[in-house]
Simulated scan of single mutants.
Amino acid sequence: MRWWEPGRGLRAVRWTSLLLVVVCGLIGLGCVVVALRGRPSALVPGAVVAALALRELRRLRRARPRPGP
């Protein structure tokens, strides 16, 4: 089932995890821009943020209910 289908409601989505992924994406994009402008050390926090976002994405995918019989 999708989160927008009846019976699930908006509470089925982990909004904090989704917000964390979006914020990490924005910060990671900012780090890449700063690194391209001549500060390669900005890639270190960018890598940490990318790892956090990946972990949360995996957690969101695991929390999805499986289609039942």
Results as ranks from 00 to 15, higher is better:
Thr16Ala: 11
Val44Asn: 03
Leu26Met: 11
Pro6Ser: 14
Ala12Ser: 15
Pro40Thr: 13
Trp3Val: 15
Ala12Tyr: 02
Leu52Asp: 11
Met1Leu: 09
Val32Gly: 08
Val23Cys: 12
Leu52Ala: 14
Cys24Pro: 01
Leu29Glu: 08
Trp4Thr: 06
Ala63Ile: 05
Gly25Ile: 03
Arg2Ala: 14
Arg59Leu: 08
Arg62Cys: 00
Val32Pro: 02
Arg11Ala: 13
Arg66Cys: 00
Val22Trp: 12
Cys24Gly: 05
Arg37Gly: 09
Cys24Trp: 03
Val23Phe: 11
Arg11Gly: 15
Ala50Pro: 06
Pro45Phe: 13
Ala47Trp: 01
Arg14Asp: 12
Ala53Lys: 05
Leu29Gln: 09
Cys31Trp: 02
Gly68Asp: 02
Arg62Pro: 06
Leu20Gly: 07
Ala47Tyr: 00
Val44Thr: 05
Ala35Met: 07
Ile27Leu: 12
Val44Leu: 09
Pro45Ser: 14
Leu19Asn: 13
Val32Trp: 03
Pro45Gln: 11
Ala35Tyr: 07
Ser17Thr: 05
Val23Met: 15
Trp4Phe: 12
Leu60Ala: 04
Arg62Thr: 02
Leu29Gly: 09
Gly28Asp: 04
Gly68Glu: 13
Val49Lys: 08
Leu19Trp: 13
Val49Phe: 14
Cys24Lys: 03
Trp4Cys: 00
Arg55Thr: 08
Ala47Arg: 05
Ile27Glu: 08
Leu43Gln: 00
Leu18Val: 01
Trp4Pro: 01
Ala42Arg: 05
Arg58Met: 12
Met1Asn: 08
Glu56Met: 01
Trp3Gln: 15
Arg11Trp: 06
Pro69Val: 00
Glu5Asn: 09
Leu29Asp: 03
Thr16Arg: 10
Leu43His: 02
Val48Thr: 01
Arg55Ala: 13
Val49Met: 10
Ser17Arg: 10
Gly25Pro: 00
Leu18Tyr: 07
Arg14Val: 06
Gly46Met: 01
Pro65Leu: 10
Pro67Trp: 00
Val13Lys: 06
Gly25Arg: 02
Val32Ile: 15
Arg58Val: 13
Leu36Thr: 01
Leu18Trp: 13
Arg61Ile: 07
Leu20Val: 03
Leu57Ser: 02
Val13Gln: 02
Pro69Gln: 00
Arg55Asp: 13
Glu5Phe: 13
Pro6Asn: 06
Pro69His: 05
Val48Ala: 15
Val32Glu: 06
Arg61Leu: 10
Pro65Ile: 09
Arg58Cys: 06
Val44Ala: 08
Gly25Ala: 10
Leu60His: 01
Leu10Lys: 12
Val22Leu: 13
Arg8Gly: 07
Gly25Trp: 02
Val34Ser: 13
Ala50Phe: 05
Leu57His: 00
Trp15Val: 07
Glu56His: 06
Gly68Ile: 00
Leu54Cys: 14
Ala47Phe: 03
Arg14Gln: 11
Ala35Trp: 03
Ala53Ser: 07
Leu57Asn: 02
Ala12Glu: 09
Arg2Asn: 07
Ala53Asp: 10
Trp4Gly: 01
Val23Glu: 15
Val44Gly: 01
Gly9Ile: 14
Pro67Thr: 07
Arg8Phe: 13
Ser17Leu: 12
Trp15Pro: 07
Ser17Ala: 11
Gly28Arg: 06
Ala42Ser: 04
Leu18Ile: 04
Gly7Ser: 09
Val49Thr: 12
Arg8Asp: 08
Arg64Pro: 02
Leu54Ala: 12
Pro69Tyr: 00
Val44Arg: 06
Arg66Phe: 04
Pro6Tyr: 14
Gly38Asn: 07
Pro65Val: 11
Pro6Ala: 13
Pro45Ala: 12
Trp15Ser: 08
Val21Cys: 05
